[in-house]
């Protein structure tokens, strides 16, 4: 029943997410009604049938189980050759338009430039898509902080730190990995984290919340002794943390603030090195 539920909602989410799937359906529809399907019978019949099978929850569940049941429902839609069929339809249906003598060469160039601009700048074509940001600056700042950390040290930091640190410095160890909050990664290993690690993560997330900081509502960190017992060497805190909070943390963790160079995005604490 769970799988049926995933299949039903997965399809609705997919259909509601963007417009490309409608281009695919439009192309299929036009090719069928204009009798152009005979030119590529197999491709168009296969695409139509497989799309219907993916849309129908019981058959979609079969495909999900075939796909080891680990992948999302959306992944089974890779069975539908959306790009190939849409492009095929465009080639068949637009061919005559391009050939038309009524359209001047300059107009063709204009249309091409518009299409290129649309493809390059029009990535937000979906409704509830996934946002991916440029992480160049973020990584540069983190790299700068990581240069001040000793080899094979263990660190605890913000989610950005925990996400990128192991690629930039594979010698360092992390208190927990991003599989703690990214549930998609659960199938990749059998590792589990203690509840203290989850609490440390939750506190760090709150420490990045500007609204909480403005209202002075950041809870006190009460896992200092556990952190020390785990052998954490460095803590990388968000740069906007209030001075009093940093001082309290330094006291509890017997840590001192390391000069973090030019970067203001992070505060680097070295544990086991009390101030004074």
């Amino acid at each position: 029943m769970n799988y049926l539920h995933f299949a039903y909602h997965g399809f609705r989410e997919y259909m509601g997410s963007g417009k490309l799937i409608f281009f695919f359906l439009l192309v299929l529809f036009l090719l069928w009604i204009r009798g152009r399907w005979e030119e590529q019978k197999t491709l168009l019949t296969y695409s139509s049938v497989i799309f219907l099978l993916c849309a129908f929850p019981p058959t979609a569940v079969f495909f999900m189980l075939y796909q080891t049941a680990f992948y999302d429902y959306r992944m089974i839609l890779c069975l539908v050759p959306v790009t190939a069929v849409t492009a095929y339809g465009a080639a068949v249906l637009l061919e005559n338009l391009w050939d038309s003598r009524r359209i001047k060469q300059s107009q063709k160039i204009g249309v091409l430039i518009l299409l290129i601009l649309l493809a390059v700048a029009g990535s937000r074509f979906g409704v509830s898509g996934v946002t991916v940001q440029d992480r160049q600056q973020e990584k540069k700042e983190l790299e700068e902080v990581l240069t001040q950390i000793d080899e094979n040290a263990m660190i605890w930091g913000t989610s950005t730190v925990m996400e990128n640190a192991r690629v930039l410095r594979p010698d360092i160890q992390l208190l927990y990995g991003r599989d703690l909050w990214q549930t998609d990664l659960n199938g990749l290993s059998y590792e589990e984290y203690p509840k203290e690690a989850v609490e440390c993560y939750e506190w760090m997330e709150k420490a990045q919340d500007v609204e909480l900081l403005m209202q002075n509502l950041l809870p006190e960190f009460d896992r200092s002794s556990w952190l020390i017992r785990q052998g954490v060497d460095y803590a990388i805190l968000p740069g906007n943390l209030p001075e009093e909070t940093v001082e309290t943390l330094c006291h509890d963790l017997a840590a001192s603030v390391v000069n973090s160079g030019n970067t203001e995005s992070y505060i680097l604490l070295e544990l086991g090195r009390p101030v004074g």
Partner: peptide, 24 residues
């Protein structure tokens, strides 16, 4: 001609399909 339009459409679809994580 069809080959060229096909490939141009593929390129445009690649460019447009960056909004959802199972798009090409």
């Amino acid at each position: 001609r069809k080959k060229a339009i096909f490939l141009l459409t593929v390129a445009i679809l690649f460019g447009l399909g960056t909004y959802f994580d199972n798009m090409d």
